[in-house]
Design a protein around this nucleic acid. Structure first.
Length: 261
DNA sequence: ATGCCTTATTTCATAAGA
């Protein structure tokens, strides 16, 4: 069983690279983030032709998540329990989470809010959203022994997860409240399946498009796979497919791939 | 061993990403 997660930064712009990657990596289940399209506009036919079913939660230009599977796709749930809206008076919550059961494994694809600036409304929202995620995960774990949350957490769990900690002082992604939220997920019994990098010492998953960040190794590990203990016990390999960050028209994130026995 | 931002929309400019 091969699980993967990938922030594709627009399914529309990335469809050729996605189809190519499905054929290359052959994941059984792939969680997508930042699809940036409505459910109606999602290119489900192209995904189907590649041999996969898909469940989506999209709200248009921004956000958007999906679960792609070739081993079944059941019991789909969109959003989180008591997910906070943004702005606070918004009628519907943002499309940032979708959960489904694939061959007995409960997977949750998440796109955690960015936070923008410490102290900003978006930052407060990010922490509230993470609290809702923790509550949802608690409930799911109570009934699903094999459970994993995969996606773009927009949190670097430790200073080792950014290319230069000094460059991030005072910025989001590395603050103590964000890291505490990450640790609260781990405290539920979820194991951070840190992948091996295909090159270098750090399994970064994101590199800014600007200033040649990828080529200079200026990356961050912010895309995570948090798996229940029973799933974690079956891991045979985990890697960041940095090759997917190369070439023409890449996402700014690389897929994280986990193999289970 | 990679190629020095990219995506979307209220598009020829701006907001957002992290």
């Amino acid at each position: 069983m091969r699980l993967a997660t990938w922030n594709v930064n627009s399914i529309g712009a990335r469809l050729p690279r996605l189809v190519e990657w499905l054929d290359l990596a052959k994941p059984d289940v792939l969680c997508l983030q930042e699809t940036k399209c409505t459910d109606a506009a999602f290119p489900a036919t192209a995904i189907k032709e590649a041999g996969y079913d898909v469940a989506t939660n999209g709200d248009g230009a921004w956000n958007g998540v999906a679960v792609v599977s070739r081993v079944g796709l059941e019991d789909v749930t969109r959003g989180l329990d008591d997910q906070p809206p943004f702005p606070a008076d918004a009628a519907t919550p943002e499309a940032r989470a979708i959960t489904a059961t694939c061959d007995g494994i409960r997977v949750c694809s998440v796109y955690v809010p960015n936070g923008r600036d410490v102290g900003a409304d978006h930052y407060t929202y990010k922490l509230a959203w993470l609290a809702a995620l923790q509550q949802t995960a608690t409930r799911e774990l109570a009934t699903h022994d094999r459970y994993a949350v995969l996606g773009d957490f927009n949190i670097a769990p430790t200073d080792a997860d950014v290319w230069d900690p000094a460059a991030f002082v005072g910025l989001t992604h590395v603050t103590e409240p964000e890291r505490a939220a990450y640790r609260s997920m781990v405290a539920l019994g979820l194991v951070d399946l840190e992948a091996r990098p295909l090159k270098g010492d750090h399994p970064y998953t994101y590199w800014d498009y600007r200033a040649g960040a990828f080529h200079k190794g200026m990356g961050m590990r912010i895309d995570l796979v948090l798996a229940s203990a029973s799933l974690a016990a079956t891991v045979t390999d985990a890697y960041v497919d940095r090759d997917a960050r190369k070439g023409k028209g890449p996402s700014d994130h690389a897929p994280v791939v986990v193999d289970l026995d």
